[in-house]
Simulated assay, not measured.
Amino acid sequence: MNVATQKPVLIVTGTDLASEALDMLRDFDVVYAGRTPTESDLIALCSTHQPTAIIVRYGKVNAAVMDACGGHLQVISKHGSGIDVIDQKAAAERGIAVRAAVGANAAAVAEHTWALILACANSVPQLDVRMRAGHWDKSTHKSLELAGRTIGLVGLGAIGRRVAAAAQAFDMRVLAFDPYAKEAPAGVTLVGLDELFSSADIVSLHCPLTDENRHMINAQTLGTFKPGAILVNTARGGLIDEPALAQALSSGKLLAAGLDSFDVEPMPSPHVFQGIPNVILSPHIGGVSDAAYVNMGKGAAANVIDVIDSHARSAAYS
């Protein structure tokens, strides 16, 4: 509680929130942690302000950060859908709710997925570089035409389903693996992961990162991919064994890869990917669009308010 304002404190691990979200949070004293807050930054800030809520944009929230809140913290709300940056076990042990703005950036991530797929299939960045250097590669270049090809989606949530719908518009065959999906949209065939890897011309990742699927894309699984396949990851970097992927790209096993997330973020420099011409890199911005920024902020704010109100109602009846 901020004694001066008598408002509960909400810390944002970033520098801003959409104005629409701030309007929803007018009963909170909002404190920003900065663009790239470290663990020590967050511990110091939480020790000082004793927040009731944290909205996570950047960085990680672990047990030490939670404990620095002095027992006041009720909810950790993700500005987006990926809650792997929050120690969920530690939160559960402390009775702290963890929430995600599920689906708030689904359209943006799906669109960026297709930006990467099309850029890989058509060598867009590479041709741009060649053109700027004075080359005209019309007689030697061939794009990978998508019509009639197979795309394999690992994860069939809000993002995966949007990617699937676009794939069907491209006249592609759509396979999907999702152990939690009870049914698939029309035109999408649910298959096992091994079949997906061996059958797909394009493999696109749309699943959360867990202890069980960390480095699911590794030397062994990459060995089962079709020669000349494309891999796209707009989910979590930890899903991929990066040295193994670098080898598959350099050897020609894969035609290309489009990556928007990395095992360590920001991606360290130098990095092996920087020297590989057939990988397209973007700095985890798949969900960062004008509309998604607003939707994620509003979703994160709504989750905070819901948990705080629920606590207040419980206290009133106890």
Rank of each mutant, 00 (worst) to 15 (best):
A316E: 08
N2Q: 14
H72V: 09
I54T: 06
D178K: 09
T140K: 11
A165T: 12
P8E: 10
D171A: 14
S289E: 08
V56W: 00
C120I: 03
T48G: 02
A106W: 00
G223H: 08
D201F: 12
G223D: 04
T210L: 13
V3D: 10
A316P: 01
D211F: 01
P37L: 04
V31A: 06
V12N: 06
A229R: 02
F177R: 05
Y180F: 14
P8W: 10
Y180I: 09
N218L: 01
Y180K: 13
D194H: 12
V129Q: 14
P208S: 14
L281R: 03
S139K: 13
L45C: 05
V154K: 02
H49Q: 11
Q247R: 12
L10F: 06
V304T: 09
A184P: 07
I276F: 09
A315P: 02
L146H: 08
E242I: 01
A64G: 07
T38C: 07
L205Y: 01
H284M: 10
L245S: 01
A167V: 11
Q88N: 15
R26N: 11
V85T: 14
K60F: 07
A169D: 07
S77E: 08
L153W: 04
P268W: 08
A292P: 10
G148V: 10
Q50R: 15
T140Q: 12
A181N: 12
A257F: 05
M131T: 13
G59E: 00
A315S: 11
V203F: 05
H215T: 00
Q126P: 02
S139H: 12
N233A: 02
G152C: 08
K78I: 11
F170N: 01
E93Y: 08
A21L: 09
M24S: 11
S19N: 12
S318K: 13
I217D: 00
S199D: 15
A219V: 04
V163K: 03
P283G: 08
S81E: 06
V294R: 14
G103Q: 07
A147S: 13
Y293Q: 10
K7L: 15
L116G: 01
A246K: 03
G59C: 08
